[in-house]
Design a protein around this nucleic acid. Structure first.
Lengths: 223, 223, 223, 223
DNA sequence: CGCTAACCGAGACGGTACGTCCCGTCTTTTG
DNA sequence: CAAAAGACGGGACGTACCGTCTCGGTTAGCG
């Protein structure tokens, strides 16, 4: 839904088919509440009244605030794209900046860490985060690797399990570093930082590619 | 920071002094409550009664739950050490595993992301996190770099601002990747992952040293 | 006051209606708490739990403790009756003893002066006391006067404003004396006191009736 | 204050004596707080800080808020006087207006009923009210009766117990009616009301004087 | 003329109750 | 017969005072 959202749809129909407008209105209201109030001051009652809906309707569809918020912000992660910038370095730099831009949006900033924190004690929520958010990000890493392999910047990995592990590692490094810089260190992720970060990661990847097989040869020695 | 901060030197002289036993008991009780209940179910009243203290006493010392929890878990980060394992690779691996072990403790796991989430809307809390947690971790990075430089694994950086930026980058990469792996991806940080991660990072660091300068000449100068 | 007050006629139609059982249970619990604890130790939370009701429910219906207590004790004043004892003297004596018996009940004793004290700073409470308590008592005075007039013990008053003033005066004298004796002097209102009091008042009334017009002729002289 | 109170024997001899300035400042501060805040919002801490005194100092001298307030307002009742106006009627009218003026002062209005209410559950407080307030008022009644007897308006009573009972009755009637009019009915005690009230009471007294002896002859019946 | 006992201010202490805000559930009435 | 409206029992919030308890320090009288 790129462009607009005609804020107030037709008020109601009477009878059954209310559901879909209500659904969208609730998610929209949730994002608006996140922007205005932040996670910790967002309440179900407030979301309901913003959406012009009864609290009952929320609870009929989401078990709790966290699940609602995950769904509400998940759509933001659909907007992430990976335009081909011609090199692995440039692609990494691009994805970093794009992810940083997303984390700069107040609704994402306030919600993301909060639901992750909540998920440390809630298996269902953890699963919902994985499918709604994590997997949406991880596909960019897979796509980037494919492109780099096609360009010859990275070798192909024969063992699919090892390939998956590598992708997971890269994903945690990239996403983790950006999140940590933006939210924990609370410093800006600007183009300079993105370039230095990309330099480090791509350096590690290609150095690793030459010297790769992990157990046999360790990095340091020269000896 | 040699001398400390004289701006608030006489913290009042008169009246009954605050109880240091109460202070310690409260922090202990907070950690216990985090373990048992997790962040979202921890209440000030519960902490107070565990500590055998009135709720008022908590509010006299901490403005809110988040600040209390930051102080309560900060001490955990004091336990982090960086034993010299003989090489940069091994030191990175060691610090990763040590930090992962810390994040595996339930009181840290549930609290860390929560206070970070809260801090996106609370400047004072952000500052408290920085001084109580972030800075405590960052010194390990600085120490590790010094050792690597002494060993000749890493070059010395002449520009102190650039040196600080580099350290910050490394810190965000290491801490971010571990946190993301442990809490967002919710996968174990085991020795294998730690080794692969160290390989990547050290590869990037040393590759960067040889090949670096993105604009004209980057990091290392004359080498 | 036949029709009552239409300014707030449709008290909302939709939503779950307020529970009438809860209403009754709360007033009952309030009286019980007054008996056991007295006014100053009565708490909203205690009343709520006695009534098996949430504190919220109390605050949804009464703005504060005082208004709740007025409503709770108002019903006691509905029990006041004025049986026809055949003479004005006997009727006064009867109403005095009856009112004294009411003031001897612990829930009335502890509550009445307290809410009056509170009302010196609270116009809304003053109005509530007037309609819930004062007016309920005053009708006894009006009834007693009518009977006395029918018996020929008291003259009819032509000027209705003057008649109202007289009734108010009598009311304050009777109610005030009984309250003062019972609560301020803290002495028993027994039949002897009631007889002497009735003698005084009826003497004043009938003396006044013969000699009435205030300014011209003063009472005392004959001397 | 002729007799005074020796019951608390030697208030200790040694050590630093209690500050008399503090004592006066506290009572002054209490009255000021009553005027500004009213009884229910008056707090010990507020009084202490108004008086420039520690809370401890208050509690060293008064057991609770009620006792402090009784002492603070008692002095107001010392100002009541009974100038000889030449007749019983005029004296009653005068005392009524004077007492009404006292009750119109905000510190008296808000405090009087409150401490009486409190005293229904506190014997010590009841006694303190009696000696500090009630007895101070009652002497006016006794004085008024003596004057009326001297003038020949009222007969002398031989039985001292009966005389005391009569004085108590008159006292409760006068004080009760004024208090009730002013605080419960919340209507002004103006000269007209005072005149009508005096007419009634003096009428009752002198009518009673002629027909008086209580036990032998009853008022109404077959006569 | 120094002891020492009781006072003084300040302010932290363990508590209790407050009145508010949300929670998630449960009736109602309306369309 | 779904959905809005809103009352329900419940629980935690953060605040305000309570009355008590250290503190360091002052101010008498006694010895």
């Amino acid at each position: 839904m790129p462009p607009s959202d005609p804020p107030l749809p037709p008020p109601a129909r009477t009878g059954r088919p209310r559901s879909v407008e209500a659904h969208a209105a609730i998610l929209r209201a949730t994002r608006a509440a996140l922007v205005e109030l932040g996670w910790s001051k967002l309440t179900m009652g407030d979301v309901a009244s913003r959406a012009g809906v009864a609290k009952t309707t929320l609870y009929r569809r989401w078990a709790n605030r966290s699940e609602l918020v995950v769904d509400a912000v998940a759509v933001l992660f659909d907007e992430l794209r990976l335009p081909d910038r011609g090199s692995l370095m440039a692609d990494v730099e691009g994805v970093v900046l794009q992810f940083a831009a997303l984390l700069d949006r107040p609704e994402a900033k306030t919600a993301l860490m909060a639901v992750v924190a909540e998920s440390t004690r809630d298996e269902a929520l953890r699963e919902r985060i994985r499918s709604a958010i994590v997997d949406r990000q991880k596909r960019l890493v897979l796509l980037g690797r494919e492109r780099a392999q096609a360009r010859g910047e990275l070798p192909y990995e024969d063992d699919p399990a090892q390939a998956a592990r590598n992708a997971d590692l890269i994903f945690d490094v990239i996403a983790g570093a950006v999140v940590h810089r933006a939210l924990v260190s609370a410093e800006p992720v600007d183009t300079e930082w993105a370039r230095n970060f990309a330099l480090l990661v791509v350096g590690g990847l290609t150095a690793g590619a030459e010297t790769s097989p992990p157990p046999e040869r360790r990095v340091t020695p020269d000896a």
